[in-house]
Design a protein around this nucleic acid. Structure first.
Length: 115
DNA sequence: CGACTGACGCCGA
DNA sequence: CTCGGCGCCAGTC
């Protein structure tokens, strides 16, 4: 099996595990996906993500808490909108990470993510 | 095979 | 706070 897909799948899967009302940074996703230091790879995967695949990509932001897209872009608008619908406050294209950042519990780490 | 790119992160000025 | 640069490495050309 093409293990290159395995990496992306792991990334996608990890993103899928982000609970509503929470967000995670690219680096965090990469780390949870077993790809420490490959934050960029996460972005690459998402860009490659087929439309058929429905992922909560809007819950993925930069480590600073700002949205992954420049303010004004349609993607940023949509992301902001979706986050607000989930109860995540977005101000000036940015989210308060200290308040909304996803903190995976042990059960998730050991069970869901199978690490 | 080599060069460029990028939905990133971090540190320094 | 902003701006610039370096590291990271898979994907694309």
């Amino acid at each position: 099996m093409t293990d290159k897909l395995t990496r992306c799948e792991q990334v996608w899967y990890t993103i899928t595990c982000i609970p509503e009302g929470n967000v995670a940074s690219y680096g965090q996703i990469a780390d949870l996906a077993g790809l420490p230091g490959r934050a960029r790879f996460v972005g690459t995967c998402l860009k490659q993500t087929p439309k058929e695949k429905v992922l909560p990509w809007h819950r993925v932001l930069r480590s600073s808490g700002e949205l992954a897209f420049p303010k004004g872009s349609e993607q940023a608008q949509e992301q902001m909108e979706r986050l607000r619908e989930e109860g995540v406050a977005v101000n000036n294209n940015r989210v308060k990470m200290a308040q909304f950042q996803w903190v995976p519990d042990m059960a998730t780490l050991l069970g869901t993510l199978k690490f």
